[in-house]
Design a protein around this nucleic acid. Structure first.
Length: 927
RNA sequence: GGGCCCAUAGCUCAGCGGCAGAGCACCUCCUUUGCAAGGAGGAAGCCCUGGGUUCAAAUCCCAGUGGGUCCA
């Protein structure tokens, strides 16, 4: 077994006079020029730069960013533009960008794709949701931050095939990385003797390596990671996660310099927030009416120096830490809390507003899934803070202040989204509040606490946090039973949701791997439907069919939401139907119904109509997304698509529902592009070039692999796409939007048809209209008015019928035909058969009861039905009578004692049953 | 992608197999003319849609539609 100790022994340390020491507090090993007791990082030390800035000059955020980037530019690093904070734009394993290295994972770090430059420097906006509880409290944590970084991508020189990786040789490694770091401190005028580099091996995402945390005056200002190991059960190194790792052929310099911290240290303000967005903090304080006396300000100021202890990840007990701080500052802990708590909330508001500006500015739309869900959580939390601390500026204005600072251009949309979301939140709270109040009243009546099960239900189904329940319940004097592991209980409810779905193994994987990649003729000429090829291999399928591999093909395999082509392959002897086409790596399998013969020469014919319709729909998909963007806004992104022969659908992100007017506008905009009849072009540019030129909006339909990607341009719209397209937009003919629906909150599904399918779809809706017009016997244009009139009349008539039934019932009760009157229990019972429906029977029964008589009514309208009603004060149970009667017709019945109904299927026994009514009444009355 | 909840008067909701309900709002009248006024009366329902079970469905079951919410 070997450890990494050796990895930290650098020549540079020796040259520059650094030596290895152990922290007396935490035991970590670190390197420093001066002799020191501790590693210098809180909680082993406190912030040393507050009031005494750590550099020669004060830097604003933008100035510090520029200082860093130009420092590395001077040292031959190319400056790269930052990537979006929504990392799921270019990778599907994470949601948000949490570090600059995320920009280059997984393709660059694995050596599959070359980096955009090597070495490079960048200042990458990042969002770390896991820091959310620390924000405001520690004085140093922010959820949104910029990670300044320089990266170098190296490959070992002594490997078998140097061309195996997209970069070759070593750019630089540990020596230069550490030297750059110290030089940067020197350039800014730091006291290098105060610098410590703590040995802190890094592990993450299947990779690992030695690393330094660079501490200056109590602040962790940089992390230098030397990513050089990968997980390997037989590996030489055991890391802190308990796994074993071995060396990789590629090794990457991954550094992180927190822009906000550097800015903070340069200014020496009590917290990072005041250094980074001073005007926003001032605005919020002023708005919330927070004014401190000089004495109070001094207390806050002194506490800030110690606030580094307040880290919920590190500290055992936050409130105990607060006690300690209060003691050291010399005030009562409650006084300290009252002073500091509102400030902490203000800091958090400023940070969260910035987080939201990044998220919404980069096109994330709040919803209940994915990044949208995270945005919603942040927004709601921020709104709570704003209300709690008493800031009365609308949230969209606060987010806009940050969006303005960050230079976003889509500020109107951002504000619109925030306003919409705040309104949704308010509605949720209204709904929830009512529900909780009612629940609290229920349990107050019972004198019981609100049980955990109710809390879980409130949270899981209605989004109401337990603390809100406690608050409202307290108003009503009801206890609430909140278990410590509340969220674990919620998780239990979701238990068993292992998302492991079977990986469909490639059939005949071994033999496929030996076959050459199939030439994809459909990319050379997407309009051609015929081709010639040689059968390289035929596989027997389990289901009687065969899988054929050709040397080249015009058949498009299923992919990118486009279904496969159909058609046939012919030899001189036999013609086989192509029923399915799939791609495995580079090899394309044609599923056919018969064996064309290995080695045979075949002519292929793609079914032209199907293909044409698929191409029309595919190109139309690009156009519709583009049109939706024009109409609804730049935040529109494709969230899934399915192309078809008769219709296609695309899901796009949008924060509101789509009005009928907007649908029409989208349809018009789409058809404008069709009518312009512009060419649809494809290119195969270098990946980095394409990303740099067009951004990550290229990857709306998914993220392709490889160094070169295929781009499809339709008018102004450019997307990475592997599908087949028409030659010119005019070939689509026409695009008809068929339907829009909200598939989930924040995602809208647009269903549309293109070309002949659009005409057919129009025929269908027109047929429906004409049929309706035919039934109503009016012209199609008059259908809406006529339908409305009919509906109104229908309602009016229903009411009229009801009234008439009542009148009829009264008339009958006054003495109609077929009535038998018997004396029961001191009153008269009316036994009558009227073949009417239940409503009429009931009306009649009520009329009889009003005259103080018992009603026993039977109807043979459908089967046999009875209603028995008894006036107040008469001792006869109507339910029992009905039960007896219904029993005689093979059914059952029941109801309250004064009004019961029932029946049965044997309608022919109805009269017999009514004949027995008197006897039944007597027997029931006698009881 | 998965789970759960909801849909009844204009609004907020109750009812959970047996006559469609309450509060607020609305209309008429009376009392009082003042901070959520009081009293009497009235109007207002395709109980989301479509199937099924049942003598009987707003109520139970299935499917759909629309909304909410939690998790990955």
């Amino acid at each position: 077994m070997s450890d990494l100790d050796e990895a930290y022994q650098l020549d540079y340390f020796e040259e520059a006079g650094f030596h290895r020491q152990e922290c007396a507090e935490c035991g970590d090993m670190f390197w420093s020029r001066a002799d020191r007791d501790t590693c210098g990082e809180p909680p082993c030390a406190e912030y040393g730069f507050i009031d005494t800035p750590g550099f020669d000059e004060e830097y604003a955020l933008g100035e510090m960013r520029e200082a860093f980037l130009s420092f590395f530019e001077k040292r031959d690093h190319e400056r790269i533009d930052p990537y979006p904070v929504a990392a799921n734009r270019w990778r599907d394993d994470v949601l948000l960008t949490q570090a600059s290295i995320y920009d280059f994972q997984p393709l660059v770090t694995s050596g599959t794709t070359p980096p955009p430059a090597n070495p490079l420097c960048i200042s990458q906006p990042c969002i770390r949701m896991q820091d959310i509880d620390n924000v405001g409290k520690t004085g140093r944590h922010t959820m949104a931050f910029e990670m300044m970084a320089h990266h170098a991508f190296n490959a070992k020189e002594d490997i078998e095939d140097p061309g195996e990786y997209a970069y070759e040789g070593e750019v630089y490694w540990k020596e230069d990385t550490v030297r750059y770091c110290v030089e940067l401190f020197e350039e800014l005028g730091a006291d290098v003797d105060e610098l410590t580099l703590i040995e802190d091996p890094w592990v993450g995402g299947g990779n690992a390596g030695p690393a330094f945390e660079v501490i200056y005056q109590g602040a962790e200002l940089a992390t230098l990671v030397f990513m050089s190991l990968e997980q390997d059960p037989d590996g030489e190194y055991e890391m802190k996660d308990g796994n074993r790792y071995s060396e990789m052929d590629t090794y990457v310099v991954d550094t992180g310099y927190g822009l906000e911290r550097w800015t903070w240290v340069s200014q020496g303000t009590p917290t990072v927030y005041e250094a980074v967005y001073p005007e926003m903090i001032a605005f919020l304080k002023d708005n919330a009416g927070i004014e401190l006396t000089d004495e109070e300000a001094a207390i806050v100021h002194n506490a800030a120096k110690l606030a580094g202890r307040m880290d919920i990840d590190e500290a055992e007990d936050i409130e105990a830490e607060r006690d300690t701080i209060a003691e050291q500052v010399g005030v009562d802990v409650s006084e300290l809390r009252d002073l500091v708590a509102p400030l902490e909330e203000i800091y958090a508001i400023a940070d969260h507003s910035r987080t939201l500006a990044y998220m919404l500015g980069d096109g994330i739309v709040p919803s209940n899934v994915g990044t949208g869900y995270l945005a919603r959580m942040v927004l709601r939390r921020t709104k709570r803070l704003v209300d709690s601390v008493g800031v009365d500026a609308p949230l969209d204005e606060l987010v806009d202040m940050q969006a303005d600072r960050l230079g976003y251009e889509n500020r109107d949309t951002i504000r619109d989204i925030v306003r919409t979301e705040v309104e949704k939140y308010r509605e949720t709270l209204d709904r929830g509040g009512r529900r909780v109040r009612q629940l609290a009243d229920d349990y107050a009546e019972k004198g019981e606490p609100i049980p955990t099960a109710e809390l879980v239900e409130l949270y899981d189904s209605h989004g109401i946090q337990p603390d809100m329940v406690e608050e409202i319940a307290a108003e009503r004097g009801v206890d609430v039973d909140v278990p410590d592991d509340f969220y674990a209980v919620v998780a239990d409810r979701h238990g068993g949701e292992t998302g492991d779905h079977e990986e469909s193994g490639t059939p005949y994987a071994d033999r496929l791997a030996e076959l050459p990649d199939t030439d994809r003729l459909y990319y050379e000429d997407q309009q051609r439907m015929e081709f010639e090829a040689v059968v390289l291999e035929v596989f027997d399928r389990d289901d009687d069919g065969f899988d054929v591999v050709l040397d080249q093909t015009m058949f498009y395999p299923e992919g990118g939401g486009q279904p496969p082509d159909h058609g046939h392959l012919s030899t001189d002897d036999v013609t086989v139907e192509v029923e399915d086409v799939q791609r495995y790596d580079g090899v394309i399998l044609h599923t056919v119904d018969d064996d064309p013969g290995k080695g045979e020469f075949v002519r292929g014919q793609v079914e032209a109509t199907r293909r044409k319709r698929l191409m029309q729909h595919h190109t139309a998909t690009h156009i519709v997304v583009h049109a939706a963007r024009q109409v609804l806004g730049e935040h529109i992104r494709q969230a899934g698509a399915q192309k078809g022969v008769d219709s296609s659908r695309i899901d796009v992100s949008h924060y509101d529902s789509v009005s009928r007017e907007q649908v029409k506008e989208i349809e018009s905009a789409a058809n404008d592009i069709v009518q312009d009849n512009v060419p649809v072009t494809q290119q195969w540019p270098d990946r980095n070039e394409a990303e740099a030129k067009h951004g990550f909006d290229l990857y709306q339909g998914g993220i392709p692999a490889g160094e070169q990607i295929r781009l499809i341009q339709v008018a102004d719209d450019i997307q990475a796409c592997g599908g087949t397209h028409v030659a010119r937009t005019g070939d689509i003919g026409t695009i008809k939007l068929l339907n829009t629906e909200r598939v989930q909150d924040g995602v809208i599904r647009l269903t549309f048809a293109a070309g002949d399918a659009a005409i057919e779809a129009t025929h269908r809706t027109e047929d429906a209209l004409y049929e309706a017009a035919d039934v109503l016997d009016v012209a199609p244009d008059d259908v809406p008015d006529t339908a409305a009139r009919f509906f109104d009349e229908w309602k009016a008539r229903g009411k009229e019928i009801e009234e008439l039934k009542e009148q009829l019932a009264q008339a009958r009760a006054a003495g109609g035909a077929d009535t038998e009157e018997v004396d029961v229990a001191g009153t008269t019972a009316v036994v009558q058969r009227i073949d009417a429906d239940m409503d009429e029977l009931r009306a009649q029964a009520n009329a009889v009861v009003e005259q103080g008589q018992i009603a026993v009514l039977g109807s043979g309208a459908s089967g046999a039905q009875f209603v028995v009603a008894v006036p107040d004060g008469v001792e006869v149970d109507a339910g029992e009578v009905v039960g007896e009667l219904a029993g005689r017709v093979g059914g059952g019945g029941g109801g309250p004692a004064d009004f019961a109904q029932g029946g049965g299927p044997d309608g022919e026994k109805l009269d017999d049953a009514l004949d027995d009514a008197e006897a039944i009444l007597q027997s029931v009355a006698n009881v």
